[in-house]
Computed example of a mutant assay.
Amino acid sequence: MSNMFKIFDVSGSALSAQSVRLNTIASNMANAQVASTTPEQAYRSKQPVFQTVMDQFGGSASTSPVRVAGIVESAAEPKARYEPHHPLANEDGYVFMPNVNLVDEMANMISASRSYENNVEVMNTTKQLLLRTLQMGQS
C-alpha cells in the first residue's frame, strides 16, 4: 500500500518538473523576437535539466521522484541580422536575435504538455484504485 502512495510523490514531482519546463518554454517563446545591440545582450534559449532523486533505502529509478537540477542556457550564438534602420542596430547595421528556434520550442511544448497530462492521469488512476480498495475494505 505504501508503494501506491509513493506514486503520488513520483507523479507530483514530475508535474512540478514539467511545469518548470513549460514555463521555460514560454519564456523562450516570449523572447524569440527580442532584438539586441550586441551578441552578449541577446536572449539565449534556456532548458531545464531533470534529475532523479534516488531513495536512500534502495529505491529504483522507476519509483524515484524527479527534480529540476537547474536551468542551462544554450551556448549557440545569437543570429546577426542586417537591419540598418532598426533602432537597436549597431554601428555596422546589425541587430542580434535570440538563438530560439520556435519550431523546436513548439515541439518541446507539446511533449511537456503530454507528459504533464500523463502524470495527472496517473495520479487520478491511483486515486481511483485507492478509493476502490477502501470501498472493498468497508464491505
Rank of each mutant, 00 (worst) to 15 (best):
H85D: 13
P87F: 07
D104G: 13
F96E: 06
S113L: 01
Y116I: 02
E117W: 02
S115T: 14
E91A: 14
V95C: 02
V100K: 14
T24K: 06
N31G: 09
H85N: 14
E117Y: 05
A107G: 14
T133M: 13
T63H: 05
A14L: 06
D55R: 06
Q51G: 03
G137W: 06
V49A: 06
E73T: 15
G59M: 01
I110G: 12
T126L: 09
Q138G: 12
V10I: 05
I25N: 00
A89Q: 08
G12W: 08
S111R: 15
N3V: 00
S36W: 12
V122E: 07
T38M: 03
A107T: 12
I71P: 14
M123W: 12
T125S: 14
A69I: 08
A76C: 04
A80C: 02
V95Y: 01
F50W: 02
L22N: 02
Y94C: 04
V66T: 13
T133I: 09
F50R: 04
H86G: 01
P48H: 10
G70F: 10
A75L: 13
M123R: 10
T133Q: 13
M4D: 12
L88F: 09
L102M: 15
A61E: 15
D55H: 03
D104V: 09
L129G: 10
V66F: 02
K127G: 10
K6W: 10
D9G: 05
M29L: 15
R21L: 03
E117H: 04
Q128H: 10
D92H: 07
V68Q: 05
G12V: 06
A42I: 02
I25V: 00
K79I: 04
S111T: 14
L130A: 11
P65Y: 06
F57P: 03
H85L: 12
A76E: 13
N118C: 09
M4S: 12
K6T: 08
Q18E: 01
T38P: 01
S16E: 11
S115H: 13
S62G: 07
E40I: 05
G70L: 13
N99W: 07
V10T: 04
A80L: 04
R114S: 10
F57T: 03
L134G: 13
D104Q: 13
N28M: 04
L88Q: 07
A32H: 08
M54I: 09
V66E: 01
M109C: 06
M136H: 12
S111M: 14
V95I: 14
M136C: 11
T63Q: 07
T38K: 00
V53S: 02
M123V: 10
S16K: 08
A35I: 01
T125K: 15
L129Q: 11
I7D: 06
V72H: 11
Y116W: 09
L129R: 11
Y94V: 07
Q128M: 07
V122S: 03
R81S: 03
T63G: 07
